[in-house]
Simulated scan of single mutants.
Amino acid sequence: MTDSSISYCNSQSIKFPSLFGIFKHTKYGYILYDTGYCNRFYKETSNLPFYLYGKLIPVYLNENESASEILNTKYGINNNDIKFIIISHFHADHISGLIDFPNAKFIYSKEGFEYLNQLKNSNSNIKCCLNGFIPNLLPLDFLNRSIQLSINDFKFINNIPFKVFDLFNDNSIFIVDLPGHCLGHFGVFFKCNNQNLLHNNTINNNENINIDSNSNNMTSNENINIDNEKSYLLIGDAAWSLRAIKLNALPHLLTKYFVQHDWNAYSNTLNELHKIYNESSFHINNLKKTRKGQEPINPQKKITNHIRIIPSHCWQVYESFCQQQQPLGSDGTTPSTTTSIISKL
C-alpha cells in the first residue's frame, strides 16, 4: 500500500494516503483531478534541497501504484486518453505524475503558478522547496499545454459558498476556489446521473457520466440545483479528512507556519466545508436537535440535498471508497453506484 507520513514535535508520525480522481465527460473525455505520486518523485528528491522534502514527508510507493499504472492495469485507460488534468495545487504529492500523460491539457490557477514560477526564475530552489514545489516534476512542454484560470474569472453562484468557474460553459464541471492551503488552490464540483462507471473492477467505455450540455438535468449556471444525490466536491488539501470537516477542527498549529499559505483563509474555507457537510448529510443526532414544535426528521426519508466531499488525504475516503470501488458519501455511507474513481497512489 502507498502512503506518506509526517510527524510533529512531541507527536506520533501520521500516515496518510495520496489520492487522485478521474471522471469522464461525454464530450471531452477522461479528466483527472491531480495525479498523486510516481517514481519520478524519488529521482527529483535525491539531491538537496529537495532531499529535505522527501525526508520530511517520506513517501511509500509500491510497484504499479502510480496514477498511469493504476489506470492502465486496473481500468484499461491508456495514458494518451486523458484529455485534461485539473491541478488542485503544485505540491509534489499532487503533480508528480503529470509527465505520464502526454496528451493532457493542464488546468490550474494563474496566480498560484505565477507565484511559484517567480521563485523558480529567481533560482531559489530553497524557496521552492519550502513551498512544496519541485519544478522538475513539470513536463518540459507544460506551458504549451496549459489552461490558466484567473480568480478574476470566478464568481459566486447559488448554493455554493465559494467562487466557481464553469469549466466547459455547460454546467457540468465547476472549478472551485478553495483558498488557504496554497495560493490558487482549486477544488472541483460536479453532479452526475445514476450510471455506474465501475463494474467488476473494469471500466465499460459505453457507461459514463452524463454531463453533456444538452442534458435536461442541468440548470443554468446562475442557479445550480444540487438536489441530485450524486453531487461531488473534490477538495484537494482544503481539509485533510472528513473528520476535520465534521468537527470543524483545524490541523496542528505548526502547519500555520510551515504548510498553509493563508491561515485565516484556510480557517474560513474549512468552516464553509463544515457547513456544507452538516447541511448535506443526515445524522441521527439531528433527531435530538429539532426545535420545539418542529416535526422530527424521518430517518427513512430520502435526503436529496447531498454533496459527497472528497479530501485527497483522508483514510475514511480511501477505506470506504477506494478499497470498495464505491464513492464515499459525506455522511460516511457508501452508495450503491459510482460516477467517479478515487484511487490510491
Score class of each variant (00 low, 15 high):
216 N>P: 01
215 S>V: 02
241 S>E: 06
244 A>S: 11
263 W>M: 02
252 H>S: 06
259 V>N: 05
235 I>Q: 04
240 W>D: 14
254 L>C: 05
235 I>D: 02
217 N>R: 10
206 N>S: 06
208 N>E: 03
235 I>M: 05
264 N>L: 09
226 I>C: 12
237 D>G: 02
206 N>F: 15
251 P>C: 01
217 N>M: 02
255 T>S: 08
238 A>W: 00
229 E>H: 13
262 D>H: 10
243 R>I: 05
256 K>R: 13
210 N>R: 02
250 L>Y: 08
222 E>T: 15
212 D>A: 15
221 N>H: 03
228 N>A: 11
232 Y>H: 13
229 E>P: 14
265 A>C: 02
233 L>E: 08
255 T>C: 03
223 N>M: 02
237 D>Y: 11
240 W>M: 08
240 W>T: 07
245 I>W: 03
213 S>C: 02
260 Q>V: 13
237 D>R: 09
246 K>Y: 04
217 N>L: 06
251 P>M: 00
265 A>W: 00
253 L>M: 11
247 L>P: 02
252 H>L: 05
244 A>V: 01
206 N>W: 08
260 Q>H: 06
220 S>D: 14
225 N>C: 11
252 H>Q: 08
239 A>M: 00
260 Q>K: 09
228 N>D: 12
261 H>T: 02
246 K>P: 00
248 N>S: 07
264 N>F: 06
243 R>F: 03
233 L>D: 05
223 N>W: 05
265 A>T: 06
214 N>F: 10
234 L>N: 05
252 H>T: 06
228 N>G: 03
